[in-house]
Design a protein around this nucleic acid. Structure first.
Lengths: 111, 111
DNA sequence: TTCATAATTCGACACTACAAGAATTATTGT
DNA sequence: ACAATAATTCTTGTAGTGTCGAATTATGAA
């Protein structure tokens, strides 16, 4: 992950409705949820939710796939992992005795 | 961590100079670095760096402590941990068999 | 006290992002 | 083909954010 990608992703998450949508999708796994369902559950106008989901997708945090007349949005977990890795990279000079985020090991590859 | 706090923190990180400063401080541990040193290493005007560091501090991501005529900024690791925890909370419905970010265990309390 | 250094605050300008509703595209069923 | 549903795109007004340089505050040394 490059700095510009991280900035896009962080900026995308730094908004009330988008953060709520992302966290909701985080719980839904790869199946995801359609735009309308997200808008309804968060009590946000469909047109705004659509805009926000597009922002998250452009930032690389979400994947969109059409299923009938619905479009399912789901978290790009690999991308999310990259983002977190980028943020805590070389924490505490990578000294395992001090380091607070030894991400290299503990977070396994599931997605 | 509440949603508003997370939005502040994410928004603070979503800027080139601030993200670079944060990542630099992430490697420095609790000792941190003075504003001037950060500005110099990142080739950013002191007045701008000061503004950006203040933004990160208001967002709760950095701590500032005076040391002589320098002000040392350092990462608030506990706060950072809260932020990450908030982002990946209840990932995959907290099902440990599927979940990609089982944060409950792997990230130990060092800071 | 006076000077030099470190850092912050202030004011003006430009730029970007958000919100709301109307209009448009895409898909399914009759 | 036509109507209904799902979602996106567009337009306008508004508010927030970043940048820059000048001025201000705070600390340490002569």
């Amino acid at each position: 992950m490059k700095s510009d990608d991280a900035i896009m992703a962080l900026g995308a998450l730094a908004q009330e409705d988008r953060l709520a949508a992302f966290r909701l999708l985080m719980m839904e796994g790869d199946q995801g949820l359609p735009s309308g369902a997200i808008a309804e559950r968060l009590a946000v106008a469909p047109t705004r939710m659509s805009f926000h989901l597009a922002t998250l997708e452009k930032a690389g945090l979400l994947n969109a796939r059409r299923e009938g007349r619905h479009i399912h949005y789901s978290v790009d977990y690999l991308r999310m992992r990259s983002l977190l890795g980028f943020l805590i990279e070389d924490c505490c000079g990578s000294n395992p005795d001090i380091c607070c985020f030894p991400i290299s090991e503990p977070i396994q590859e599931t997605h």
